[in-house]
Design a binder for these strands. Sequence first.
DNA 1: GTCTATACCGAGATAGAC
DNA 2: GTCTATCTCGGTATAGAC
Lengths: 220, 220
Amino acid sequence: MDATETAKRTATASAATGRGRGRRQGYATGDARRARILNIALQEFGENGYRGTSLARIAERAELTQAGLLHHFRSKQELLTAVLDLRDAMDAERLDLSNLPDGGEPTLLALVALVEHNARQPGIVQLFTVLTGEAVTTDHPAHGWAQERYRLLSTSIATALQHGVQAGELRADLDATACAQQVMAMMDGLQLQWLLDPERMDMAATFRAYIDGLLKQISA
Amino acid sequence: MDATETAKRTATASAATGRGRGRRQGYATGDARRARILNIALQEFGENGYRGTSLARIAERAELTQAGLLHHFRSKQELLTAVLDLRDAMDAERLDLSNLPDGGEPTLLALVALVEHNARQPGIVQLFTVLTGEAVTTDHPAHGWAQERYRLLSTSIATALQHGVQAGELRADLDATACAQQVMAMMDGLQLQWLLDPERMDMAATFRAYIDGLLKQISA
DNA sequence: GTCTATACCGAGATAGAC
DNA sequence: GTCTATCTCGGTATAGAC
């Protein structure tokens, strides 16, 4: 379910259908409208963070009024939550956490592939980086989401590594939890530098080099 | 935080910042007030980010009105800049980038010491993490600061590593630039997880373990 | 389902008295 | 140097017409 695609299709469809009564035409059906709003909101939250984004701006880009937008999402918070859910769904297509490849090396190489994919998706990466930074504050609406995300990711990766240890693929003295946290930290930290200064950072290559070195170190 | 304590530390920073109001004021009381405001602002920006912080709240905690605050700092932006300068000055006491220890290993161990220090300073760490995340956006008032900071840090560390290579201490095939970026990324990424969930992360130990492994890998 | 209109609030900044 | 008062703007959310 690619929402971007849906949004594009909607734009043309609604323009052609034009089921508005009265002076303006081009009203879309509810669900398509929602998808379009969600996609724009995803971009805006990524570019300006939660606090830096206004509903009016999103509404404008989605070609309705701010009040109209609030018919679909009753509050800004609710919109954010929906965006985070969308992002998670998109992620799940790329990397199924509940079904990581078998063994330590395949798991780490899957992460390399993910970073390579991300290097072509600055918008999505930025949404994550900006919101996670904001969400460090305990009372931020995305705080719980960010915590939950890290817990899920770190235990998933740690478990995969632990399996590698048990299979004799990785060294018996490996601290799987710490290693998983380090790998995630490297991903996030490189993303930050890459977003700030894309010219100076070949994110995918630098991450791959890190994983290569790591594998040499932890392989049995 | 103790305002008078910080007033001393601030001396250089505020002189460098230059508030441009020249000769006419009594510096004794003026600077103490400024220092107090700066410290509170540092906490608030760290807790809520730039956009999430209001001058009124800072003023209230500093026990004056918002208009009174704006007598010392003519705008919110100016206050942020002063806070960033203060932070840099505090950092410089811990780690003099223009005078890193000689050689690769001593440099990396100095970073370990820095992380150990940071693990006892969540407020400062959070200021950095929150603002850097926010500042990914190109039009954020701290964007230039963040870029500059990374450039300075990465070239300093890379240069130190390169010296280690030339001295035969580190492997000749080391990519000093990439390695410096990785080390910074690890610091930032671990900070993020630590701030979100302090219980689950022994930041100092995890970073030290990373550096230990790295040294084994890159030593000649 | 979308609109217009508006209530309501909080922000940053300025003017001018003391 | 600090205050009160005020301006102006932009934000979220609601009410009610169509």
